[in-house]
Amino acid sequence: TYTYKLTDEEASRRAEDEWRNRGYDVRVRNNNGTWEVEVR
């Protein structure tokens, strides 16, 4: 499981799409203004 911490929502969406396209399960959540993109 990888977790990315990003401050930019758009960057988190791009990361989400990119990993999803590669067949990974992705979750995005906002934690106090930081976007966490979790990849498994």
Rank of each mutant, 00 (worst) to 15 (best):
D25L: 11
A11E: 12
W19K: 00
G23L: 00
R40C: 08
D8T: 13
R27Q: 14
R14I: 10
E16M: 12
R20K: 11
E36M: 08
V39H: 02
R27V: 15
R14A: 10
T34E: 10
E16Q: 11
R13M: 08
E9I: 07
A15V: 15
T7N: 13
W35C: 01
V37W: 01
D25I: 13
D8K: 03
R20N: 05
N30D: 09
E38L: 10
E16K: 06
V37E: 00
R22F: 05
R22T: 03
R29D: 06
W19E: 03
N21F: 08
N21H: 10
E38I: 14
E36W: 13
R14P: 02
V39Q: 00
E16A: 15
T7Y: 15
N30F: 15
G23E: 02
V28E: 02
R20E: 04
W35L: 03
E38F: 07
R14H: 10
Y4F: 15
R29N: 11
V28S: 05
R20L: 08
V28C: 08
S12W: 07
T7A: 15
Y24R: 02
K5N: 10
G33P: 00
R40K: 11
D17A: 15
R22D: 04
E9R: 07
W19V: 01
A11T: 09
R29E: 08
Y24W: 06
R13C: 06
D25R: 07
D25Q: 12
R20A: 06
Y24F: 12
N31W: 07
E10R: 07
R27E: 14
D25A: 09
E10T: 09
E36Y: 14
R22Y: 05
N30P: 07
T1F: 13
V26I: 04
L6A: 10
D8V: 03
R40V: 11
T1K: 10
D8G: 07
V26Y: 00
D25T: 11
E18N: 08
T7D: 14
L6Q: 07
E10F: 08
T3D: 04
T34I: 15
S12Q: 04
Y2F: 13
Y4Q: 05
S12L: 11
T7Q: 14
W19A: 04
K5Y: 15
K5T: 14
Y2H: 11
D25K: 07
G33E: 04
G33S: 03
E16D: 03
N31K: 09
K5V: 14
E16N: 04
R40W: 14
D17M: 15
D17V: 15
E18D: 10
G23V: 00
T34A: 09
T7E: 14
E36G: 00
Y4C: 05
R40F: 14
N31E: 10
T34C: 05
E36Q: 05
G33I: 01
Y2R: 12
Y24E: 02
Y24K: 02
E38Y: 08
T1S: 12
G23T: 00
V28A: 04
R22K: 12
E16L: 11
N32H: 09
V28D: 03
R22P: 02
G33N: 05
T1N: 10
E9A: 08
E16S: 11
R22H: 07
A11F: 05
R40P: 03
A11W: 06
E9D: 04
L6F: 15
E36D: 04
